[in-house]
């Protein structure tokens, strides 16, 4: 999966491609019944764990529910993708 593409708004100029992409993401949320609060909660807990080791750019942190192709059989499965910009590694773990 192309992470760069995922976190950048679609470059496509066809508005129908934008519509399709938005719908595909939207429906994963709808179908899985995942609330924004749930994602916020996950985000908070991931940060808690990571900040022990890494200094994170909190404003740039993004977490998304999307879908991806499973490697062994190429079927589409939901995926939780986090984009976590690192400021620096903490001294104590070196």
């Amino acid at each position: 999966m192309d992470l760069f593409k995922l976190f950048n708004k679609g470059e496509s100029s066809n508005s129908k491609d934008i519509a399709k992409e938005r719908l595909q993401l939207l429906l994963i949320h709808d179908r899985a019944n995942v609330s924004p609060q749930f994602l916020e909660m996950i985000k908070g807990e991931i940060m808690d764990v990571l900040t022990d080791y890494i200094e994170i750019d909190e404003t740039g942190l993004e977490i998304k529910l999307t879908r991806t192709k499973r490697e062994n059989d190429n079927s589409t499965i939901p995926a939780l993708v986090a984009n976590i910009p690192i400021k620096k590694m903490k001294e104590n773990i070196r």
């Binding site: 100029s13 066809n14 508005s15 129908k16 399709k20 719908l23 595909q24 429906l27």
Partner: peptide
């Protein structure tokens, strides 16, 4: 023009 989802798009979704 590519400004409306086509049948395949919708059935796919």
């Amino acid at each position: 023009r590519g400004d409306m989802m086509n049948i395949d798009d919708m059935v796919d979704i």
